[in-house]
């Protein structure tokens, strides 16, 4: 079943086509890798899917039903999409625990004035922070975490939204081996929970190990797609990375 689809998606920056008539279909419950050389439009695609950038054309379809010619950031959560950023973006002046608890804020603003977090919320926050091994840092300000810990906290923040689709933009970059293991495990667990992951990554070993399916982008276009073994051996892919 297709959970996310783009049809002729376009994004231009001046005269440059960052995403150029891109049409892809993402199956539910799969780990999808998006690879391509620098500047091939991978992050721009994620930014379009999460409403951070305005689309110049085409459409995004979620669950075969919801069609968007424009996504907005505030819609993303409600359509079950969570994301991380290439350059980590946390609520820096808040503690690790509050970075998670704030997601569990009541949607009703007025009632949030008077309600405190319940045991259920604290338990849920503990659960995700344990998963990324940050529970013991729960009272530290996010700004004081190390780079790797910040990346893990961003993943925990995505997890607590209980989304259906996870857009992970270079989540392994700059992580120590034990942290990479934590992120790999989380991605595999998401697959077991029938969640969909879209992973941008430059480490081909990880892509081969984790992904069920790969989209290769070059100059904003889809170069090739398919299973890792088939795609990574392809002549076009090698040429896109290494040149002819």
């Amino acid at each position: 079943m297709t959970i996310l689809e783009t049809r002729n998606l376009i994004k231009r920056f001046g005269g440059v086509h960052a995403v150029d008539h891109l049409s892809i279909e993402v199956e539910k419950g799969r780990i999808n890798g998006i690879i391509g050389p620098n500047g091939s439009g991978k992050t721009t695609l994620i930014n379009l899917l999460s409403g951070m950038l305005a689309m110049d054309g085409g459409e995004i379809i979620i669950d075969d039903v919801q069609k968007f010619t424009q996504m907005f950031p505030h819609q993303v959560f409600f359509y079950g999409i969570a994301r991380t950023f290439q350059n980590v973006r946390l609520f820096e002046q808040m503690t690790v625990l509050d970075n998670i608890l704030v997601i569990l804020t009541k949607r009703n603003v007025f009632s949030s004035l008077f309600e405190k977090h319940t045991e259920y919320h604290l338990k849920k926050a503990e659960e995700v922070l344990q998963r990324v091994d940050l529970w013991k840092k729960k009272n530290q300000l996010a700004i004081n975490l190390s780079y790797g810990q910040r990346k893990l906290l961003e993943i925990a923040r995505a997890l607590v939204t209980d989304a259906e689709i996870y857009l992970l933009d270079e989540s392994f970059t700059g992580l120590f081996p034990e942290m990479r293991k934590i992120v790999s495990n989380i991605i595999c667990e998401l697959k077991q929970e029938n969640k969909t992951v879209i992973l941008i990554e430059h480490d081909m070993g990880l892509i081969r190990e984790l992904c069920d399916y790969i989209f290769v982008m070059n100059e904003g276009k889809l170069l090739v797609e398919g299973k890792p073994n088939y795609v990574l051996e392809g002549k076009e892919v090698i040429e896109a990375y290494l040149g002819k």
Binding site: M52, P73, H74, F85, R89, L90, F91, E92, S112
Partner: peptide
């Protein structure tokens, strides 16, 4: 907490709902 989150990064606050 929501006010502090918006104060830190309004765009991300929107994305997380």
């Amino acid at each position: 907490k929501a006010i502090k989150a918006i104060s830190d990064d309004e765009e991300v606050a929107k994305i997380v709902g």
